[in-house]
Simulated scan of single mutants.
Amino acid sequence: MKPAPFTYHRPASLAEALALLRTHGPAAKPIAGGQSLGPMLNMRLARPGHLVDLNDLIELDRVRVKEDMLEIGALTRHHRLANAPEV
């Protein structure tokens, strides 16, 4: 089965992504990996009007020590985290 029609967005910044999510409200779904959303779209169990791809948001891909805490960004991949010298 094919997914229901949707509009695909690939924002270049976090501000743009947040604006898209705010503008389209519940009809927009963020996607970063797609492991669970992809099959749900194909089976039409999920029918978002807009997909907002977050993969280009490099500001969310970080591992750093800030004061006495380790800060891990929301889009940090497992491999990067496993190999980060900060960890």
Rank of each mutant, 00 (worst) to 15 (best):
M1C: 14
M1E: 14
M1Q: 14
K2V: 15
K2C: 15
P3M: 12
A4T: 14
A4C: 13
P5L: 12
P5N: 12
F6L: 12
T7D: 15
T7N: 15
Y8Q: 11
H9V: 14
H9T: 12
R10E: 15
R10C: 13
P11D: 06
A12W: 07
A12V: 10
S13G: 08
S13E: 07
L14I: 12
L14R: 13
A15Y: 09
E16R: 13
E16L: 13
E16C: 12
A17I: 08
A17P: 09
L18C: 15
A19D: 15
A19R: 13
A19F: 11
L20R: 12
L21T: 10
L21Q: 10
R22H: 13
T23A: 14
H24T: 11
G25W: 08
P26W: 14
P26M: 15
P26N: 13
A27C: 11
A27W: 08
A27S: 13
A28S: 08
A28Q: 07
K29V: 13
K29T: 13
P30G: 04
P30Y: 04
P30R: 03
I31M: 10
I31R: 06
A32E: 11
G33S: 05
G33V: 04
G34E: 12
G34P: 10
Q35L: 11
Q35G: 10
L37A: 00
G38S: 14
G38P: 09
G38C: 14
P39M: 08
P39D: 07
M40I: 08
L41I: 10
L41A: 08
L41R: 08
M43R: 14
M43A: 12
R44I: 04
R44N: 04
L45C: 06
A46H: 07
R47M: 10
R47P: 06
R47K: 12
R47C: 11
G49T: 07
H50R: 05
H50K: 06
L51A: 06
L51D: 06
L51P: 05
V52R: 05
V52F: 05
V52H: 05
D53K: 07
D53F: 07
D53N: 10
L54S: 01
L54M: 08
L54P: 02
L54Q: 02
D56Q: 11
D56A: 13
L57S: 06
L57W: 04
I58P: 05
I58R: 11
E59W: 00
L60Q: 03
L60N: 03
L60K: 03
D61F: 00
R62H: 07
R62P: 00
R62L: 11
V63N: 03
V63Q: 02
V63Y: 03
V63F: 04
R64T: 04
R64S: 04
R64F: 04
R64W: 02
K66N: 09
K66V: 13
E67T: 04
E67G: 07
E67D: 10
D68P: 02
E71T: 06
E71R: 04
E71F: 05
E71G: 03
I72G: 00
I72M: 00
A74E: 03
A74V: 02
A74L: 01
A74T: 02
L75Q: 02
L75A: 03
T76Y: 00
R77I: 00
H78L: 07
H79P: 00
R80A: 05
R80N: 01
R80Q: 04
L81G: 00
L81W: 02
A82F: 03
A82Y: 02
N83A: 09
N83D: 07
N83W: 03
N83Q: 09
A84F: 02
A84Q: 01
A84W: 01
E86C: 02
V87I: 11
